[in-house]
Computed example of a mutant assay.
Amino acid sequence: MDTSKKPEVWLRGSVPGIPAFLQPAAHALLQSKEEVFKYTEAFPEALIWEKPAGRASVGFHLQHITGVLDRMLTYAEGNSLSEEQFAFLRREGEPTEDRKLANLTTDFSKKVDQALEIFKATPEAILTEKRTVGRKKMPSTMLGLYFHAAEHSQRHVGQMLVTISVLKIA
């Protein structure tokens, strides 16, 4: 995925099929997806669970952005989290044999693709419908949840870049 000569996603025009109000979220998720692959391209597998200065590992960031996106999509549908989602949340940051870099980046990529398909199927007229978050049922809307998922992924990709940069010079 060579994007080195392209402008950032938000400067490339509308994402086909995505409603206008969801374009910023789609742009941010696609930017996150591109940057995840760009920043991890030559990153050593042996370092994905390292925590420089006690900060979150690259593996954690990859698991977390995938998990948050999944959870926000669930809340946007008006559902509570499943036991599988709670189990995934508890395991974020735990290295296991199946949690290789390629698996983590692919999982995030697939979750972004799923989100974009959901965005395409979401009529703009329902984006302001009320939704709740978590066990405390904190108030939000579909649009708020989609935006948070996109913004949150961008934030963690930025943190992941810093972690990668530190680990590469260590």
Rank of each mutant, 00 (worst) to 15 (best):
V9H: 06
V9G: 03
W10Y: 10
W10I: 02
L11I: 00
R12S: 12
V15H: 01
A20P: 00
Q23N: 07
A25H: 06
L30N: 03
S32F: 03
K33M: 10
E35Q: 14
V36C: 04
T40V: 10
T40W: 12
F43R: 14
I48L: 13
I48W: 04
K51A: 08
K51M: 13
A53T: 10
G59W: 02
G67C: 10
V68E: 07
L69I: 05
R71S: 07
A76G: 05
S80N: 14
S80M: 12
E83M: 06
E84F: 07
E84L: 12
R90Y: 11
E92A: 07
G93H: 08
E94C: 13
P95L: 13
T96R: 11
E97L: 14
R99V: 04
R99K: 15
A102D: 15
L104V: 09
T106S: 15
S109G: 14
K111T: 14
V112K: 01
V112D: 04
A115F: 09
I118R: 09
K120V: 01
A121T: 04
A121Y: 05
I126S: 12
L127G: 01
L127Y: 01
E129T: 04
T132P: 00
T132R: 07
V133K: 07
R135E: 14
K137T: 07
M138Y: 13
M138A: 15
P139K: 11
P139I: 08
T141Y: 03
T141P: 05
T141E: 02
M142H: 01
M142L: 08
L143F: 11
L145S: 02
